[in-house]
Design a protein around this nucleic acid. Structure first.
Length: 467
RNA sequence: GUCCCCAUCGUCUAGUGGCCCAGGACGCCGGCCUCUCACGCCGGAAACAGGGGUUCGACUCCCCUUGGGGACGCCA
């Protein structure tokens, strides 16, 4: 039997981080077992579903590099089939019409709550004569679920989970307007799509028990279930907007690489002994459900950033230059000149190990752009004005003017030579130079900076601060 | 309230009865390197929630407590 998994988000917002991890696990599991993942959009709630959310989900998955087999399936489009199954259950006496009104139901819950009883539907229409049906009142169809015994789910992550049937009420299968509920739709779809493994968030664990009852009553074989623990915010509470854990696109905008997010999400709740870094091929080879932890985990941005800096340093440099360029263009709002673009690959090696995100990378690359006179950060301004700095810069200007080999070694010789001649430690000369050259007090090595900028630009920038 | 799930350093985790006075990673602290910032390297502080069992021996098995999370919709 081949492995078929599915990712089934409801299109009511972006692809959030928990959903992204669920998708990743489904994808990885399918790949590992030589199967494939399906995408199903759970859009039966017409009021809350939007086309924009569907697009956001597609884009999020694509950005993460997760693909699915075939066309995405719209759950709403399958409503007729869901209704058919509900009526089949009804005809077989495994479901019944219930004429309770919403008000009646909420009153029932209120009283139960007040009396400290469980807030379940009491089954008042379960065995009632259909002849007693109130006229003009459309009924819902409820499952006639077993009232004794236990329903068990062998969860691949959580182990054996059992709930006494007396704990559960008769769930609604088909609403009064004839549309299916989520419980029915999920079961029918997973069955029809031949899904072999349902991998989803822990919040569905108790749903699995109820869904199991539908499978049983239909005489269908239930899929394997794997309920993965939820991701919490840094404070341990449920992940919310407040935590900055938004859609995956928010991480993209923060300058996180998809490879880094994938690695981070995978390691969150899953482990392979002490290993921390996995590329996709390695992840596919190693991933399996038995190594998933059972407890919820907290989302930790610093660790994500650490991973991101790793991927920044190891990724293809040409591709990284392109990403950095795009980021720069986005921040300055204009295209780069040819000279500016040419400096990027020169400097990338030095820049990339100083950045944790793409945004930071672009920021550190800002000094490569032509925009004299440079805007000086406060500390840099002090360096360039302090004491004998202007005089020193004039000497440096003269000295560099005579450099014939404008490369790292040639520049190092010249600058070190000047420092020696002046009886200064290199730092005393390098700092004012750095400030004049970059407008900041921190940058890659000073010889490199000179080299990246080239003779003309370097001399001009120093010239701006000479006396 | 009822039901279900979970519980190792601040965080992610290794650990499936003796290899553990608990290992790795992130973060944090100190040092080295050094023209700044990073990188790198070296070192440090930091955890088995509590209580009962079982056992020659429990982080590992069982029970209780506590704490956290989830579910109880004609939402998904």
């Amino acid at each position: 039997m081949s492995v078929i998994t599915r990712f089934a988000p409801s299109p009511t917002g972006f692809l959030h981080i928990g959903g992204a991890r669920t998708a990743l696990f489904n994808w990885l599991f399918a790949q590992h077992h030589g199967g494939h993942m399906l995408l199903r959009i759970e859009d039966t709630d017409r009021a809350r579903s939007t086309e924009a959310a569907v697009t956001a989900i597609h884009e999020g998955l694509e950005w993460l590099g997760l693909d699915w087999r075939g066309e995405p399936i719209s759950q709403f489009a399958r409503a007729a089939r869901h209704g058919e199954v509900a009526r089949e259950l009804l005809a077989a006496g495994k479901a019944y019409h219930c004429y309770c009104t919403p008000q009646e139901l909420s009153e029932m819950r209120e009283t139960a709550k007040a009396e400290g009883r469980s807030m379940r539907y009491d089954g008042r229409w379960r065995d009632r004569d259909p002849g007693e049906a109130p006229a003009g009142q459309a009924p819902v169809i409820r499952l006639k679920s077993p009232q004794s015994g236990t329903t068990v789910v062998h969860d691949l992550v959580q182990g054996e989970v059992k709930v006494g049937n007396s704990e559960m009420d008769d769930m609604v299968l088909l609403r009064a307007d004839g549309t299916p509920t989520y419980m029915l739709a999920v079961v029918v779809d997973d069955h029809d799509m031949a899904v072999s493994h349902v991998i989803r968030g822990d919040d569905h664990l108790t749903n699995a028990i109820r869904q199991r009852q539908i499978y049983d009553l239909m005489g269908w074989q239930a899929p394997q279930f794997a309920h993965i623990p939820l991701i919490h915010g840094a404070d341990g509470a449920k992940l919310s907007k407040r935590h900055g854990a938004l859609g995956v696109e928010a991480y993209r905008d923060m300058g996180i690489l998809p490879a880094a997010l994938r690695n981070y999400l995978l390691r969150l709740g899953w482990s392979h002994s002490d290993d921390e870094i996995f590329d996709t091929a390695q992840a596919v080879e190693w991933f399996d459900l038995d190594a998933i932890g059972k407890s919820p985990s907290r989302f930790d941005i610093p660790k994500l950033e650490n991973l991101n800096s790793h991927y920044l340093r190891t990724m293809d440099e040409v591709a990284l230059c392109a990403l950095c360029r795009d980021q720069l263009v986005a921040t300055i709002g204009r295209a780069l000149s040819e000279t500016e673009q040419d400096r990027l690959p020169l400097a990338m090696g030095a820049l990339k190990e100083r950045a944790k995100t793409l945004v930071e990378l672009a920021d550190k690359a800002m000094f490569l752009l032509d925009n004299r006179p440079l805007e000086m950060e406060e500390k840099a301004a002090a360096l360039v004005q302090g004491g004998d700095a202007p005089g020193l810069l004039a000497k440096a200007h003269a000295c560099l003017g005579g450099v014939t080999d404008w490369n790292h070694d040639g520049l190092a010789d010249a600058i070190r030579g000047l420092a020696d001649a002046e009886g200064l430690k290199l730092g005393k000369l390098a700092q004012p130079l750095r400030a004049a050259l970059t407008g900041r007090n921190a940058s890659p090595g000073i010889f490199e900076v000179l080299y990246f900028l080239g003779r003309r630009e370097s001399l001009d920038r120093i010239g701006d601060h000479m006396e």
